[in-house]
Amino acid sequence: MVRRLALAALLLLATAVVAPQIRAHEASLGVLEFREVRPGAFIGRWTMEPAIGASRVDLHVPGHCFLRMPQLICGDKGLVGPITITNLGVNMSAVLLKIIPMTGASRSYTITTASPVVSVLAAGTPTLQSWIELAGTYVNYGIDHILLGADHLLFVLGLIWIVRSGWRLAKTITAFTLGHSISLAAAAFGLIGIPERPLNACIALSIVFVAVEIVKQRRGEVGLTARYPWAVAGAFGLVHGIGFASALAGLGLERRLLPGALLFFNVGVEIGQLAFVLLILALMWAHRRLNAVLPRWGDLLPAYAIGSIAMFWFIGRLVRVLGVT
């Protein structure tokens, strides 16, 4: 008992040392807004200035437009065509471009280091080209979100640790996918809405739950997750999906493009999740081949590590919910 407590304390200490360095969802983002003040003329404004400073952003607008911040003049053709930022990098990984026309809904585009050019679409029926651009943007965004979402990945890792392999794992991951797809769609269409801060605390708590279930399993007890892994994965998938939706909502999507963007974002999330699951399974296989397994005394180490990190996140997020800081 004393050894277990000492182990838990050591892990918590290590987590506390490393944790301030780990930021699960943060990226150096800038938000630029162009508001149409008369036909073809826009006023630009950085609502969130990037770390390198607004004046140092190398922004290129379509050839028929003339830009001298804050003014953007595009004439009769309007703001249609490619917009590029050429100096995206370490200090500025992405810029969200919002275009607010005089009539109709506002539109948002994400310029990232992977796709530094976006084509601004004309109002009206989307063309094939605009669908391709939408797919490119939102699949990438979905992949980014899941790969940067350490909490989602840690939950999936916990599920894999309990279920290990085979059809049960396939069913469990499918249930998680179904769960978060349903709630992502529901939240994106405004059918459900949960404040972000308590939700994030719940997500952290779901990982703590899985860590406790791993400990139970290692002690020979049959926990809820070991018995019905698909049910636990599906239920917590619903919670994680609302978390995905809050990331999508931050982009201020056009209503007409929402179903497409949602689909492509979800595809991106699945691609990232599948890559992570395959990597973990490959590493587990490699460890079995190498006969490199944890000694008996360290059997509970992964569970305590996952649980300690998640508990640290939960306490931090709970503090924010309660408004202590």
């Binding site: 930021r23 995206l88 280091t113 992977a114």
Partner: peptide, 15 residues
Amino acid sequence: ADAHIVASRLGDFYA
């Protein structure tokens, strides 16, 4: 291929 730039987009861990 924008290997170095892609890495920086996903933060320093992935870089």
